[in-house]
Design a protein around this nucleic acid. Structure first.
Lengths: 188, 188
DNA sequence: CCTTTTTGAGACAGTATTGTTTCATATCTT
DNA sequence: AAGATATGAAACAATACTGTCTCAAAAAGG
């Protein structure tokens, strides 16, 4: 039915562009095509404009994030346990967060992308409010602030991983520790 | 001695470019010149290349940060108290951090800029190690991780302030609370 | 007041990128 | 195997931005 060539090119382009634009958001589409081992014309056939390409990556990233989170949503995990689990699940795809954060200022997205984004944020916020009601999370902290911190810590972690400054498992442990208990010494 | 026009144009250009490029790193130099109420030719007379302009903003930002931090360095504050104070001092200029973080991937800086940056980071890292030795900061956390978290939390705060989502004083309090004690409820 | 210097406006060439189109070739589907 | 379709290479126009230059006007300094 569907031509295998199309799928192959599409995949190669999505992977390559993510890889290239993550490193350098200014990269020309020639570079992307080259990295994807695909002709420049083919790139334009698949993604008519640059914005179109970036949007496709954004949607794929958000979809990836969503797919990682739904198992947690459908499970009966709540509050702290849910957040704990979420961090573990999202850390491996933290570079997707990085990408979204990076292009956020460069491209104006349409409703579709925003909806996906808001949806994920709403889910996280919901867990936080739940945790606060249950008394496991500090109710003095604004939910928006906590969401933002979570976001930026994942970003930090992704950056450290990308630069090979620490091992993934160690980062995971340190992130959770810091997020829940802060940087203060336990004994203090 | 020095022509007042030069200083005036220079200041206007530095302010305008920071403002414009913070919003949109892609903005053309025409937009910058327009915002600065200065001719495009004048912009090029002051800053021969785009990179040159961005570098100037980066240096000014780093200098600003440095000037904010030196009073703390020369004081005898240490460990937690020093970090506490630092957060308070840096929060008002968090948008400078935001800017640096934003352009970091877009421009390759020369030694001068790197030195200034490394210098600030080293100072912060020094305080953290000190705090860990004194037992006020969790010694299990990597100093690099803590620096990174600090950085990203300031970024979060700056973003929230920029979007008028919370008041500055409240953010300051929440940032310190989260940084030191995490998001966990005290009673938990 | 007179000289020097900066400025703004505009024209200008150079360059890079975008996006389109064509056509022969290779690869798929049936 | 045969027809349909995606692809690569290349040429192409259009655009946008960069960086340079000139010149008259404005503003500074002594």
């Amino acid at each position: 039915m569907t031509d295998r060539r199309i799928q192959k090119s599409n995949r190669a382009l999505l992977d390559a562009s993510f890889q290239v634009l993550l490193k350098n958001p200014h990269a020309s589409l020639s570079e992307v095509a080259k990295q994807a081992e695909v002709g420049r014309a083919t790139l334009y056939r698949h993604f008519p404009t640059r914005e179109n390409l970036i949007k496709a990556i954004a949607i794929e990233s958000l979809q990836l994030i969503k797919n990682s989170m739904t198992p947690i949503v459908t499970s009966d995990l709540q509050g702290k346990a849910a957040i704990h689990r979420m961090v573990k699940v999202l850390l491996p795809i933290a570079d997707r967060f990085h990408f979204l954060q990076m292009i956020w200022t460069l491209v104006e997205f349409d409703q579709q992308v925003w909806r996906l984004y808001e949806e994920q944020m709403a889910t996280i916020k919901c867990w936080i409010l739940q945790g606060q009601r249950q008394g496991v999370l500090n109710p003095d902290l604004a939910a928006d602030w906590i969401v933002s911190v979570l976001d930026s810590m994942l970003y930090s972690a992704s950056w450290i991983i990308a630069n090979n400054m620490m091992e993934t498992t160690q980062i995971e442990q340190q992130l959770l520790q810091t997020l829940f208990e802060g940087i203060q010494s336990n004994e203090a």
